[in-house]
């Protein structure tokens, strides 16, 4: 079987890559809570946030042999979580899926007791921003990532990350200013 001869060669040439595999399980164990919190900020409800992170984990795990650079693994994983959040939000926005029930967001009125009205206002304003601005602001001011890290995570240029944040903050200030 010529085919299998080829296959055997392929494997031997790939072995070094396999050895460098990132320990995805450890990565997630270290960052699980933070990732769920990130997803919660994007999505508003914990159950879905947990699902998204779980899914990102499974996905990353599946592609773990592709993760060759441990240094970039966390950014990769954050991207996976953000992508998962985007999928959920997109699904929620589909006309026919509006009816899909999900828990009231953390910024709904019910959560005032937990986080206070002032914070709730901020979160409502944040949730009303365009997706990219929302993501960028959360990455910047919740995760305290650098512009470069944000750019990596979001898959945009550094300058784009910076301008997105600027615009997001301005929009946020406008919204909150109008309210107060």
């Amino acid at each position: 079987m010529r085919l299998f001869g080829v296959k055997a060669e392929l494997l031997s040439e790939r072995e070094p890559l396999i050895r460098e595999r990132v320990d995805v399980a450890a990565l997630f164990a270290d960052h699980h809570l933070g990732l769920v919190r990130l997803a919660l900020l994007m999505l508003g409800d914990l159950a879905t946030a947990e699902d998204v992170v779980q899914e990102a984990f499974a996905r990353t795990h599946a592609g773990r042999r592709r993760l060759r650079d441990p240094g970039s693994a966390l950014a990769y994983v954050r991207s996976a979580v953000l992508n998962g959040c985007r999928s959920v939000l997109r699904r929620r926005s589909l006309a026919f899926r509006r009816a899909v029930p999900y828990a009231p967001p953390v910024w709904s009125a019910e959560s005032v007791a937990m986080i206070g009205e002032d914070r709730r206002e901020v979160l409502v304003a944040l949730s009303g921003l365009p997706r990219r601005q929302r993501e960028a602001l959360v990455l910047r001011f919740y995760l305290d990532l650098s512009y470069e890290e944000i750019a990596d995570t979001m898959g945009v240029a550094g300058s784009t990350a910076r301008s997105t944040i600027t615009r997001g903050l301005a929009a946020l200030a406008r919204t909150l200013g109008e309210e107060s």
């Binding site: 399980a25 997630f28 164990a29 699980h32 809570l33 933070g34 769920v36 919190r37 919660l40 900020l41 914990l46 947990e50 992170v53 779980q54 899914e55 984990f57 499974a58 996905r59 990353t60 795990h61 599946a62 592609g63 592709r66 990769y76 991207s79 996976a80 992508n83 953390v106 910024w107 959560s111 937990m114 986080i115 206070g116 002032d118 914070r119 709730r120 901020v122 979160l123 944040l126 959360v138 001011f141 919740y142």
Partner: peptide, 25 residues
């Protein structure tokens, strides 16, 4: 505000590698 939300949770369920659809970024 974002931290306050984050602090509303302090534990999360364990991961299960096979418990999801697997995709690759």
């Amino acid at each position: 505000a974002t931290r306050a939300v984050g602090e509303t949770i302090d534990q999360v369920p364990a991961f299960s590698p096979a418990a999801g659809r697997t995709r690759s970024e």
